[in-house]
Amino acid sequence: MSELNNRVVEKYRNNFLKEVEANVEEGDWVKMCMQCGVCAGSCPLGDAWEHTPQKLFMMIRAGKRDEVLSSDAMWMCTSCYNCIVRCPRELPITHIMHGLAHYAARLGLSPKNQPTQKFAQLFWDNLTKTGRVNELKLGLNLYFMNGFSEGVKKSLEMRSIGQGMFFAKRLNPMEILGGHGVKDQAGFHAMLDKAREIEDAKLDKFGK
């Protein structure tokens, strides 16, 4: 449990809905869910979730904080936006799923070794390094994210796809040396640091 988590628990005590409304991106929409279940039926990975969005929203209102934040459900969102366009009350469900996932990760409560969480973090770290995605490094980091021996196995499994991409000129081995990036590195990183600082200050305020 992170120190930040202890502080938000202290602050909101038994009102998880209020906590979500204050701290989760688009969280103030959660109370608008009318439990129709269209989102649950529309999700392409509906079978794979421990909890559908509909369930998560009711669990938030019922104060099931640990179950919600440690659920792997939000990490199954493919960002297909079916739920958003079909929701009769127009809740931005996709964004709430992303927001819950981010919040859980930030508090250190998301499930251990969740593959999409790991990949999503790799993607963010990759793009923020130079300002643009380095696909080669992203792929290699993905294959090796569960350790060296599994990485070698995965790399061999994926070898023919990599070769296909290489011969189609859609994969450049030289990217390993650095690859693409924005020119204004200093400005780019200063902007991201500032954005993070503002966001941390907001959470800090709620946490106190």
Binding site: E25, G99, A101, H102, A105, R106, A120, W124, K183, A195
Partner: peptide
């Protein structure tokens, strides 16, 4: 000098404001 948009998978590491800033 455009930068990456963080696509729809950047949310784990990037919170709301860092993503919007991109």
């Amino acid at each position: 000098d455009w930068n990456c948009c963080a696509a729809s998978i950047g949310y784990a590491g990037g919170g709301e404001l860092p993503r919007l800033a991109l």
